[in-house]
Every structure is written in structure tokens, then in C-alpha cells.
Design a protein around this nucleic acid. Structure first.
Lengths: 341, 341
DNA sequence: GTTTAGCACTCTCGACCGTTGAGTGCTAAT
DNA sequence: ATTAGCACTCAACGGTCGAGAGTGCTAAAC
């Protein structure tokens, strides 16, 4: 719907702006990109683009700055076309993260740092949402008089442990029986499923014929609560080095938002079901606090089940192409890692 | 060594400055504190204090600002005297943290948030340094062919788990024997001790008479590596709201330092052996990056063994008295919690 | 001898220009 | 449809100026 030439001018402005913040004028566009047109013509085109909402002027007689709508158009046009597959990046990734494969939490922590290092924005990774993990095995170990350590092994290689209080009369043998009961019934099913079954079971007549089953259900009820994934955030200092954050109030806003991890978790949860990297640009954010920022995020999967998310948070003036490919690569890397475990 | 009256004036200036940043003049001192002296006299005293290095003038004909030396004198004088024991605070602490007692990591995360909420500075908590924790019990569980999940129970209620690779031929029975061997030999000793014994043992003749012992030692070697305590940091946004941080470069510096958690860990490790809350004021910091900031920190113990640290990081213009009592209270709370487990 | 009043002096801070330069919009010529 | 030319606009920069806060000094008062 946009003239090819007009499109090129729009992209030129956006690219200029991404490279260096500050309004971009008609002359620099003609200089940096050889359109074979004079500044005056470019001016006219830019004026059109402004009317259509893709660009805006901070004030009369200043250059143009892309709007969020402009970025959106840019991202959507470019997405399929260009994709910088960075071989070196993958190798680096492999080398650095190889040693951490066993511990997904340490891995994700490191991964968030890499995301931020590469992009120079904020890197975010979220560990698998427990409700989507599948139970491989459960172990119950008597810890103290009335305390039991519960060790959950999941297919994804995550281990969780919790200490719960139980009837002091339970012996380790009882616990073993309970564990094997749970294993035989629930192994291979997701936490979410288990939770539902248990809830139904517990809601039924309290007087379960078998006290073992009852004990098992109680334990499951205590253990299989959905807990949100852990969040790893890196690169705050990275982002502060950007000229976009010369304003102190923006930093405050950002930090306050980031510090409240629930917000980010919910945000990443939202994109969990989408395919491929998702891009949310500035005002497209539903959360007011995030409106000054853009997010590029993607989910990693185990099989077809979305497990967790990785993403990059930066200013709306973000290098979207780079960010998209970094996020995509990272998500795919983790997905593969999980599948050939 | 300081005249009582002079001392009072110094403290008055410091307190004024803590309440509101900006040079404090002689007139405001006479107004806020009734010394029964005229501004002129105060001026003379302040001039003396400047000469002695406790105060300084940002520029001629401006009010005075405390120097780090001044703060130090203030803190040392006040420390024993005044201590605001906040009953409400303790109750609140109890209520909020009661439910988290079982999981020390969640607890410490919450505790760091409370520290920052209460002080309006940055709250920091560090989980027990593993080398000081004592092993209560170890459990080995066969996980996959050549992988074993190692579950460490410590006296402090912390559980650690790791997955390590072992000889695939080991059966669960073998593992049980190895575990009980380790338990009988090492239970009750600190990770650090165990590490030393194991290292010695492994360094000896490779051909250990008993292959079980050898396996046990190998596993111990892999598991009992010292890992630094986890660090929980909260309240960055809190600190940005302070007028002290109007300067963007300071924020950047601070964030960069904080983000590199090793620095903070080392810092807290240093105070591990001191008694009571430690105060490091601005330029007293050995690390250049931390020189613009002050730290109030204390260790919590189990018995007499220092386990981890809690602290507050803020500007040199910090409410030291409040910070000290908050940190002290928190450290004591955790110490008690650990002892009556 | 100590304290105080008075006064001149210093320095920062914000307001208020005029200037500069980048960039536009318009118009008339190509 | 494009371009050259020109008048116009506006932020940014730098300098000046006055107000205000606070000091240091001196001489008088206690």
C-alpha cells in the first residue's frame, strides 16, 4: 500500500535513526542513501510519510523521527526478507553454554547475559513454567520428624525440591510406597494435569478407602502448585549506556517495572503460544509502564509444548532485525537442547 | 577529642544534610537546633570543623557538607548510644517471613526486599556460603543411564541438588552404599572440611583398595566444590528516587557495579568475620566503583559460624542510624531463625 | 575572652536575551 | 514530477545580569 520509493525513504529514515538517535533530516538521507533525488523531493516524501503516520516531527523545522507505527511497518516488511544468521554467534553460544547444559537455571542466567551482551539491550530469560513441565519421577525423602523433602525430576532436566510437612508417623517405607504410587499414576503427565486430577480427587469424598492414596494426594496437592518460572534479567547497565536513556525519569520508570518481575512474567506468558519471535513496539504494549519500550521475545519448546521464553527489552529505537535474529537463534538453540537431551 | 559543643554542631549539620541534601548553612542550624548561639558563632565552629576535615565547602560562600571522615565520626559516636528498636518492624518481619522459613532462598529474596523497603536504599542478602554449611545428609538417586542426582541436606535447612555424570554401571544399590559411606564419614562436617579431606584422599595413591571408597571420593570431589552464596538485590528503583541520584553517570556506575555480583559477594565476604553491623563509608571502600556509596552490613550466624550476610547500600548521605538498626535486627532475626530450626 | 551584629564580598542559580545552524515549507523554474 | 532558491522556524548554545544564600571579617557588646 506504500509506494516502493516511499517505503525506501521510510526505511532509510528508520535505519538512520537506529544508528544514531536524533531527528533525521532530508539532507542526510540523500547523502547516506543514493536515491538519486534531491533533498527537496525527499522532503516532500517525508512530509507524506508524516501525514500517513509513519514519521513525526518533534517540532516544526526539525528532522523526522519514526513513530511506533513506522517501526511496525518496518519490522513486518523486513522480517521475512532479511535474516542475519550469525554462525560465529552459534559457535560462541555452544562453547559458553555447553558446560551449563545440566543445570537449566544456571544456563538461563548465562543466556540472559548473552542476550544482553549481543544486543546491548536488556536480556530476559524465563525458566519453564512449572505447569507445563512433565513429571519424570518423584522421590520422597524423610528429612526431619514431620518433614519430607520432595524431589521432582522432570523430563526437561529440571529438578525441583521442596520441603513439606506431613504426618510424623510416616516412615521412609511409607514414603517409598507413596512415591511409587505417584510415579505409576502420574509420571509422564504435566504438572497442570496432575494438579487438576488431584484437585478432583481431593474434592471427592474425604474418606478415601485407601489412606496411602489419601496421603499421596495430599502431598501432590502441596507440591504440584503452579509456580511461575524464574526470571533472569541482565544488561541494565548496558541499556543505560544508550543515549536514549539520558532522561533520568525514564530510567526510573524502567527500573521500577523491571524490578517487579511479575509484570515481565505475565508479559512473556502472553506470547507463549505464538509462533516465532514476537515484536511488541512501544505503544503497542498493553502495560502503560512498558509503552516507552519495545520487546522482542520468543518461546522455546519441548516438542510442541511451549516451555519458557527468552527476550530482549530495549528502547523503541531498537535494532529490530538484529534483536529478532538473536532472540530467534537463542530460542531455537534452547529448543534443540531440550529435545536431544 | 572534639569539644562537646563542636560535636553537637557537627551532628546537627550531618542530620540536616541527611534529611535534605544540599549545603547546610549556619542560619538553618541555629533555627532547627536550639544551641542558644547566633549564626556567627556557629559559623566559627563550622569553620573549625572544616579545618579539621569533618566538613567541607562545595565552594566559597556556600554552606557546609559532611565529609566521609565526618560521617565516620558521627557513626562511631552514635553507634552505642542510640538504637531505635522497632517493635513493629520485628512483628512485620515475623508475619511476612514466617511462611518462607522453610525455603531459605525465597526467604532471603523477600528479606532483601524488606531491607530496601524499610531503608529506601538497596537491600542485599547473601545466602550461606556453601563452604561453611554443614552436611546433614546426602542422597544419591540414579537419574539416567550415567547420571546421578545428588541431593545435599544441610543443617541449615538448605537443600542443594546437582546432577553429575558417573560410571553407567553403578546401580541404585551401589549408590545407596556410597551414600551411606559418605554420610557415616562426613555428616556433621562443613563442606570446606569435606573438600579438604577428599582432596587429600584423592591425591593419595590412585589405587584405593576399595572401589566403593574411590567412587565415593570422586562423587564428593564433584559435588563439594565451594560455590559462592546466592545474592539477592532489591530496591534499585528505590534508590533512584533519591535526590542524590539526579546525576545519570552515578546511576550508571552503580548499576554496573551492582550487576557484577561477584564484586558485592567479595565485599560481603570481607565483613563475614566481624562482630555486629559494619559500616563502610564512601571513600573507605577499597573498590573504586563503590567509593561514592556507603554500605552497612552484618552477618548472620549459625551458632558461632558466620553463614551469610545482609546489608544496605546507599549514598554516603545515608541515614546511618536507621540503616544500622535495620541491618542489625535483620541479621539477628535470621541468626535466631537458624538456631531454633 | 567569647559572643554577636553588621557589612562587604563571593558564588551559584535561574532568567533572559541574541546568535547560530539545521531543517523545513513554499514557490517558481526546470 | 522534480529541483533550486529563499524565507521562516525553532532548539541549542553562550553570555550577561540580578537575586539570594551564605560566608569571613571587623568592631562592638557582654
Amino acid at each position: 500500500m506504500l509506494d516502493e520509493r516511499t517505503k525506501q525513504v521510510l526505511f532509510a529514515v528508520i535505519q538512520c535513526y537506529i544508528n544514531a538517535p536524533g531527528p533525521v533530516g532530508s539532507r542526510v538521507v540523500t547523502k547516506k542513501y543514493s536515491f538519486g533525488l534531491s533533498p527537496a523531493t525527499i522532503r516532500n516524501i517525508m512530509s507524506d510519510l508524516e501525514e500517513m503516520g509513519y514519521l513525526q516531527q518533534p517540532h516544526t523545522s526539525a528532522g523526522r523521527v519514526p513513530t511506533d507505527v513506522g517501526y511496525r511497518y518496518y519490522v513486518d516488511s523486513m522480517r521475512a526478507e532479511q535474516r542475519l544468521i550469525n554462525k560465529d554467534f552459534l559457535l560462541e553460544l555452544n562453547r559458553k553454554l555447553e558446560s551449563l547444559r545440566k543445570d537449566i537455571n544456571a544456563f538461563l542466567d548465562e543466556a540472559s547475559k548473552m542476550l544482553s551482551n549481543l544486543s546491548h539491550y536488556i536480556g530476559v530469560t524465563m525458566s519453564p513454567n512449572t505447569s507445563n513441565t512433565t513429571l519424570a519421577r518423584i522421590e520422597l525423602i524423610k528429612y526431619r520428624d514431620n518433614q519430607v523433602a520432595v524431589i521432582l525430576f522432570t523430563d526437561e532436566g529440571v529438578i525441583k525440591n521442596r520441603i513439606i510437612s506431613v504426618d510424623a508417623s510416616l516412615s521412609q517405607r511409607d514414603l517409598n510406597r507413596i512415591a511409587s504410587y505417584i510415579n505409576s499414576h502420574f509420571s509422564g503427565r504435566t504438572v497442570e494435569e496432575i494438579r487438576k486430577v488431584v484437585a478432583k480427587e481431593l474434592a471427592r469424598e474425604k474418606v478415601l478407602c485407601d489412606s496411602l492414596v489419601e496421603q499421596a494426594m495430599t502431598i501432590c496437592g502441596a507440591v504440584f502448585s503452579a509456580s511461575p518460572g524464574n526470571l533472569y534479567i541482565s544488561g541494565l547497565s548496558e541499556v543505560l549506556a544508550l543515549p536514549d536513556f539520558c532522561d533520568i525519569d525514564r530510567i526510573k520508570e524502567l527500573l521500577k517495572t523491571i524490578e517487579d518481575k511479575h509484570v515481565i512474567v505475565r508479559l512473556l506468558d502472553k506470547i507463549a503460544n505464538a509462533e516465532g519471535p514476537q515484536v511488541i513496539i512501544g505503544s503497542e504494549n498493553t502495560l502503560d509502564e512498558m509503552k516507552p519500550f519495545s520487546i522482542v521475545a520468543s518461546t522455546y519448546r519441548e516438542g510442541s509444548r511451549p516451555m519458557g521464553a527468552v527476550g530482549i527489552i530495549g528502547p523503541t529505537r531498537m535494532n529490530y532485525l538484529e534483536a529478532i535474529s538473536i532472540v530467534d537463534l537463542m530460542a531455537n538453540y534452547i529448543t534443540e537442547m531440550l529435545s536431544d537431551k
